[in-house]
Simulated scan of single mutants.
Amino acid sequence: MSTFREQLEDDLNVFFDAEEFAEEHELNGTMCSCIVQSPTAREVFLQGQAYDSYEGISGRQIVVHVKKSELPEIPAEGMTFTLDGEVMLVSACVEDMGNISITLHQNLR
């Protein structure tokens, strides 16, 4: 019989399987199987906060879900971070039971 932690690891392997949900993306120079969300309603779904744009500048936010073991380091808030070569800033990073959810933002003109 599997322990809860072993079952959780099995579940994460399915969730981050490229044939199921995940896709390959470059995260800060490391190729990872991850899930990328682009909220279209300008909301940060994990935090429930609206994205505030600045006058004359539009922006976008992206949430990346990745297994903790895929990245060499956990990003810190305010850190510069690349997603598929695009430079973004880390708004938040939450680690929970082997999964990391990274909220990124980028200002666009």
Results as ranks from 00 to 15, higher is better:
Glu77Trp: 07
Phe4Met: 06
Gly29Ile: 09
Ala92Arg: 14
Glu86Cys: 14
Asp52Glu: 12
Tyr51Cys: 08
Thr3Ala: 02
Ser101Gln: 09
Thr103Ala: 05
Glu24Thr: 04
Cys32Trp: 00
Leu108Asn: 10
Leu104Glu: 04
Phe81Pro: 08
Arg109Ile: 14
Leu108Trp: 03
Gly56Asn: 12
Ala76Ile: 15
Thr40Leu: 09
Gln37Ala: 13
Pro72Asn: 13
Gly78Glu: 11
Ser91Ile: 11
Glu20Lys: 09
Leu27Asn: 00
Gln7Lys: 03
Leu104Phe: 01
Val94Cys: 08
Arg60Phe: 11
Asn99Gly: 05
Ile62Met: 11
Val36Arg: 05
Gln47Gly: 05
Ile35Phe: 03
His65Leu: 07
Glu43Cys: 13
Met1Ser: 11
Glu43Ile: 09
Gln37Thr: 05
Gln106Tyr: 12
Ala50Ser: 14
Val64Phe: 06
Ala18Arg: 07
Thr3Arg: 00
Asp52Trp: 09
Gly59Lys: 11
Leu108Ala: 06
Thr82Trp: 08
Arg60Pro: 01
Phe16Arg: 00
Val36Gly: 05
Met31Gln: 12
Ser91Leu: 11
Cys32Asn: 10
Asn28Ile: 02
Glu43Gly: 13
Phe15Ser: 06
Arg5Trp: 01
Asp84Ser: 04
Leu104Cys: 07
Asp52Gly: 08
Ile74Thr: 14
Val90Asp: 02
Glu23His: 10
Glu23Asp: 07
Thr80Phe: 14
Lys68Arg: 13
Ile62Lys: 08
Asn107Asp: 13
Asp52Tyr: 10
Gly98Pro: 01
Thr40Arg: 05
Pro39Trp: 00
Leu8Arg: 08
Gln7Leu: 03
Ile100Asn: 00
Cys34Arg: 00
Asn107Glu: 14
Ala92Ser: 15
Cys32Arg: 00
Val66Arg: 04
Lys67Asp: 04
